[in-house]
């Protein structure tokens, strides 16, 4: 039984909208609205969802890059949100992030040596005289050459820059890394390289990943478990196999049906949703997906479904937030396209 390295409880991230002459708060963008989940030590949990569903916000909230509105982020038995600024700075050593855009996430004025040694200096890892050797070792680990140590970011390609970002995250010996769309900005061929590098590092250093992505192909490749978000809520969470083979939430099914199948002869039913994602400022009542769900009933409009498991239909640990898992499964309810 592996332990939970990260427990997120009732996390809420609201961004106030100010308006009027006095700049008073008029409303909130409910980017993340009351989500709870766990990440087990050594696993890769992916968060998927379309743009604006709150997946990146979740990552940033856990790291306190934006201060969350409410909730608890229990990391290694400590509530990160309750830590003082100073303690949090120290704690960041164990919890790192790799960003999406390798062109924006490293300071163009610093060389690789400066970037990595600054990271070590901040967290005071290793005595000064041992840092250079460590930098070279890190560069080798992520697939960069030692001789590139004094180069500036503009001398590297996108994939190489992302490797610098990975080296920076690794330089402080973290336990867990949040990968925020870390391969989305890269070419497909480079994506595979970086993904394999991440997998290798996970094995070598026993890392835990929270992998945020909108690319289901990538998620399928790297994850152990997958969490699907829609409009700031978790709609389904399961191990990778259950989620891809046996999705229970209508939204997850829609998402999966969008994955292209590399077989032109195979006929495939693609579910196309009506309308757009509603605004997170005034999210729909009840189940947030009811405005677009082909199975929605009055109950969905009124009642917010809980994440739940059904023993006979789902694996252990597989939970979906839908009132009608059983009815849809048995064919009792027909989609209303």
């Amino acid at each position: 039984m592996t332990t939970d390295i990260l427990k997120v409880r009732n996390l809420k991230q609201y961004f106030p909208i100010k308006g009027g002459i006095l700049g008073r708060k008029v409303n909130d963008v409910k980017a993340v609205d009351d989500i709870s989940f766990e990440v087990k030590e050594g696993e890769t949990l992916s968060i998927v969802g379309e743009s604006g569903c709150g997946k990146s916000t979740t990552g940033r909230a856990i790291l306190r890059l934006d201060e969350p509105t409410e909730g608890e982020v229990d990391f290694q038995g400590q509530d990160l949100l309750a830590l003082s600024k100073k303690d949090m700075r120290r704690k960041r050593k164990d919890l790192q992030i790799i960003f999406q855009d390798p062109y924006a996430s490293i300071n163009p004025r610093q060389t690789v040596r400066q970037i990595l040694s600054e990271a070590m200096e901040i967290q005071d890892v290793l005595p000064k005289d041992k840092r250079e050797a460590r930098i070279k070792e890190l560069m080798k680990t992520v697939g960069l050459g030692e001789h590139q140590i004094d180069r500036f970011p503009h001398e590297f390609s996108g994939g190489q820059r992302q490797r610098i970002g990975i080296a920076r995250a690794l330089s402080v010996d973290p336990k867990m890394i949040i990968c925020d769309e870390s391969v989305s900005a890269l070419d497909v061929s480079i994506q595979a390289q970086v993904l394999n590098l991440l997998k290798k590092l996970q094995r070598d250093y026993n890392l835990t990943y929270l992998f945020i992505s909108h690319d289901l192909g990538v998620v399928r490749h790297i994850s152990d478990r997958v969490l699907v978000m829609y409009l700031g809520k978790i709609v389904e969470i399961a191990d990778k196999k259950s989620l891809f083979d046996n999705p229970k939430h209508p939204y997850t099914k829609t998402l999966l049906s969008a994955i292209p199948v590399p077989d032109p002869t195979k006929k495939k039913e693609q579910i196309v949703l009506k309308g757009d994602v509603p605004s997170p400022i005034d999210p729909p009542t009840g189940c947030r997906f009811h405005t677009r769900c082909p199975f929605a009933t009055d109950k969905c409009v009124e009642e917010d479904p809980e994440l739940r498991n059904n023993d006979s239909l789902m694996q252990d640990g597989h939970r979906a937030a839908c009132h009608y898992i059983e009815e849809i499964e048995s064919g009792e309810m027909k989609p209303n396209y």
């Binding site: 890059l65 992030i97 996430s105 901040i122």
Partner: peptide
């Protein structure tokens, strides 16, 4: 900018 966030995530002080 994202790299400011990155340095913050590393635990850099506001001063730095």
């Amino acid at each position: 900018l994202e790299y400011v966030d990155a340095v913050r995530a590393l635990g850099a002080s506001d001063f730095r």
